[in-house]
Structure formats: structure tokens, C-alpha cells
């Protein structure tokens, strides 16, 4: 593991509420967190503990209400929506369901990410997408429609999609939730090895106990607060 001193994520006293007035409910209570370059961090905790909310804040998908949060050197508190869109282009996303575009082939789904990178030519994009699919073991299925792939294969396409543009940070939300034990294991192993190769740090929300061992560090959340870090 190559750790760098630079902080990829640095949050202080993040609080967050849902709803308005009487119905206002606090979800996050002064959360602090820091993730270094190259680190693989798992965020666990029971459902409703606020971990997904924290992830959407880091991804710039919700507006910061209180506290400070820097992601990839950008202060998210008070950032404009176009800045947040810019930020998200530097992040690789893996979702609970694969969220692939059903009318595209595996290769087209991966290639699609280069639409956000106009400096990469169509030929180069296609080549890099093909290579990435080969690395997740789907080189022979690259032209298959998404509907003809198994759940595990789809999640591997999603990993290829998240990593093909060499993102500076990978955010994953329960990537094994829809998979059986064996495929889940394969998927996280693959994610880990590819991310380590590229030096991309990972923040993964999961409550799948079977995959906790891939982490460099595990953060436990309970009732909107982060507990003592366990190593």
C-alpha cells in the first residue's frame, strides 16, 4: 500500500438534517473523517446510521449544511452545483445495484465515461475500455447486452466503468449487496487489486461482514456518529 500524506477526504464536524421545522431530524452529528491517498476504508454500521448520507455528501450529491468537508482539495461547503459536477467527474462510482445503461453493451457502458473526458479520443477510449473489461475478466463478453450478463458480471462491468478513467477516488455503496457470497468476494477482490494498481483510494459503505478483511481501515457508524476507528 502506498500512502501519501495528502488527504483525499478531510471532514470536520459534519452535521446534517433531513426535513424542515417540526419534522426536522438530525442524521449526522459532528462527524470527523480523514482518508489518505491510496487508503482503502470501509464504512460500516446498521442501516439508518447515516453512512449513505455521509457518502452522498462526500460525492457532492447533497448540499453541506454544517461543518467543513474537503474532497480532492475542494471545499464542498458552499460549492456551486457546477463545481460539484466537476468534482464528480474525478470520482469513480460503484452503486448497490449495478446501474448500467440497459440499452448499451458492456463495452459501451464503460466507454460512455470518456464522454466526460473530451481529451480522450474515441479510438483511445474504446481501447482503454476494452482493456479494462479484459482486466475484470469480461474481454470475451464485451459486446454482450447488459441484460445477458449475470449479476456478478454486471457488477464487474460497473467496476470497469468506475475505474476506466483512473479516478482520484472511488466511492462504493454496498457493491456486494445484490450478489451471492462467492461473486461478492470476487468483486471486492477485483476492486481492491485494480484500485491498488492505480493508487486510487476507496471509501466503501458496506455491512457485508464477509468482505471486511480487504480494508486498510474500518470506520464504524452508529446513530449518526463515527465510533473509534478499528484497525
Amino acid at each position: 500500500m502506498i500512502l501519501t500524506d495528502e488527504l483525499v477526504i478531510s471532514g470536520q464536524e459534519i452535521s446534517f438534517w433531513f426535513g424542515e421545522g417540526e419534522l426536522r431530524k438530525q442524521i449526522l452529528f459532528e462527524v470527523d473523517l480523514q482518508i489518505q491517498g491510496g487508503e482503502i476504508v470501509l464504512l460500516t454500521g446498521p442501516s439508518g446510521s447515516g453512512k449513505t448520507t455521509l457518502l452522498t455528501l462526500i460525492a457532492g450529491l447533497r448540499t453541506m449544511q454544517s461543518g467543513s468537508l474537503r474532497v480532492l482539495g475542494m471545499q464542498l461547503s458552499g460549492a456551486s452545483s457546477s463545481l460539484l459536477t466537476q468534482l464528480r467527474r474525478r470520482i469513480g462510482f460503484i452503486f448497490q445495484a449495478h446501474n448500467l445503461l440497459p440499452y448499451l453493451s458492456a463495452l459501451q457502458n464503460v466507454q460512455l465515461m470518456f464522454e466526460l473526458h473530451p481529451d480522450v479520443s474515441a479510438v483511445e477510449g474504446r481501447q482503454r475500455a476494452t482493456e479494462m473489461l479484459e482486466r475484470v475478466g469480461l474481454g470475451h463478453r464485451k459486446d454482450y447486452a447488459v441484460s445477458r450478463l449475470s449479476g456478478g458480471q454486471r457488477q464487474r462491468v460497473a467496476i470497469a466503468r468506475a475505474l476506466v478513467t483512473k479516478p482520484e477516488l472511488v466511492l462504493a455503496d454496498e457493491p456486494t449487496a445484490a450478489l451471492d457470497g462467492t461473486s461478492g468476494r470476487e468483486v471486492v477482490n477485483l476492486l481492491r487489486s485494480l484500485a491498488v494498481d492505480q493508487g486510487s483510494p476507496i471509501l466503501m459503505v458496506t455491512h457485508d461482514a464477509r468482505v471486511l478483511d480487504i480494508a486498510d481501515r474500518i470506520m464504524e457508524m452508529q446513530d449518526g456518529r463515527v465510533g473509534a476507528p478499528t484497525h
Partner: peptide
């Protein structure tokens, strides 16, 4: 809509 939301989350602009 779910696919459009996914694309927005991944950094595609509304204009795209």
C-alpha cells in the same frame, strides 16, 4: 430516470 440520475451522479451535466 434511474439511468439519467446515475449519469448525473457520475458527473454528466444537465446539458449533456
Amino acid at each position: 430516470l434511474p439511468q439519467f440520475a446515475t449519469m448525473k451522479a457520475m458527473g454528466f451535466s444537465g446539458r449533456y
